[in-house]
């Protein structure tokens, strides 16, 4: 089977889709950094007696269930959404991938130990795990990031390991071993370059999952505290406005969709990725 490693990827120019997606991602990140400075009102400021107000000149994105300015809240929310989900997804995906490769390279004992540990971790009910974390460590953004990362590491591990195990049985990895290359060199030099695509795709998915998980964890008292809220939390707290079509519930949902779709489109269209090699 794939007995030739992939080395020296061709550098293709960014496709228009990648450029567009990248621009949106950058814009979202800019919001996370500068958003609060652009907001007209504080995130917790109750500025209107009119709840679930429609879009208007005074409140361009309407008001929420307490009469707070949604534009300001969404601007603030970017920081809590991206600022938590990105590090958590990087941690989960990074740790999962590294451990997955390690299990594949280091042979059966470590593989079994790591795999069963991850299976145990993923078998722990999320609710109990989260509540224990709150009880033991209290509530903070750091704890939130770590909890989300731990919850999603085993999944990443499983995917990464299954690919890395296939790769480590290939002749080119055997050849590398025969050359006397160390485990780390094999992991980073031979295996990782050959699984970039699935790993990145997995990362993109974890990112989406974590964005959606945040509001649940915050609801359990883990992490983002009022008046602050992430976008998912805003959808949740304003859900009762849905039947009236309030922008307060639709806008943050659209914001999540824009963010997660653009991140994943960017991943799909990175140079050397989605560009097909038909070889015709």
């Amino acid at each position: 089977m794939s007995d030739e490693p992939i080395r020296g990827r061709r550098r293709a120019p960014l496709s228009p889709v990648a450029l567009a997606a990248g621009a949106v991602v950058v814009a979202c990140f800019a919001l996370a950094v500068f958003g609060p400075a652009l907001a007209l009102h504080g995130e917790g400021a109750i500025v209107s007696r009119h709840i679930f107000a429609p879009m208007s000149a005074a409140f361009p994105l309407g008001t929420d269930y307490l009469g707070r300015d949604m534009l300001s809240r969404v601007l603030y929310g970017a920081r809590f959404t991206i600022g938590v989900a990105l590090p958590a997804a990087l941690l989960a995906s990074g740790a999962g991938t590294m451990l997955g490769m390690l299990a594949a390279v280091r042979g059966r004992t470590l593989d079994a130990a790591l795999s069963r540990t991850m299976d145990t971790l993923i078998s722990l009910p999320t609710l109990i795990f989260s509540l224990v974390v709150v009880a033991a460590l209290g509530s903070s953004i750091t704890v939130l990031v770590l909890t989300a990362a731990v919850i999603y590491t085993p999944g990443s591990y499983r995917i990464a390991r299954s690919i890395a195990v296939d790769l480590s049985a290939t002749d080119f990895v055997k050849a590398a071993r025969a050359r006397g290359e160390g485990g780390l060199a094999i992991m980073l030099g031979e295996i990782l370059p050959n699984m970039v695509m699935p790993v990145l795709t997995d990362f993109g998915l974890r990112f989406v999952f974590i964005v959606l998980l945040l509001s649940s964890l915050s609801f359990l008292g883990l992490g983002i505290q009022p008046p602050y809220s992430d976008w998912g939390g805003m959808v949740r707290e304003n859900i009762e406005g849905l039947s009236a079509g309030a922008p307060a519930v639709i806008v943050p949902a659209v914001a999540i969709a824009i963010l997660t779709i653009s991140v994943n489109l960017l991943i799909d269209n990175l140079p050397g990725r989605g560009s097909p090699r038909r070889g015709e």
């Binding site: 889709v17 993109g204 998915l205 989406v208 999952f209 964005v211 959606l212 509001s215 998912g232 959808v235 949740r236 859900i239 849905l242 519930v249 949902a253 999540i256 969709a257 997660t260 779709i261 994943n264 489109l265 799909d268 989605g274």
Partner: peptide, 19 residues
């Protein structure tokens, strides 16, 4: 086709379940 399918797929998972 690939691009559209990818985008739709991500769109499905990015909608909060309760929404």
């Amino acid at each position: 086709y690939d691009r559209v399918v990818n985008m739709l797929t991500i769109a499905t998972v990015s909608v909060p379940e309760f929404l």
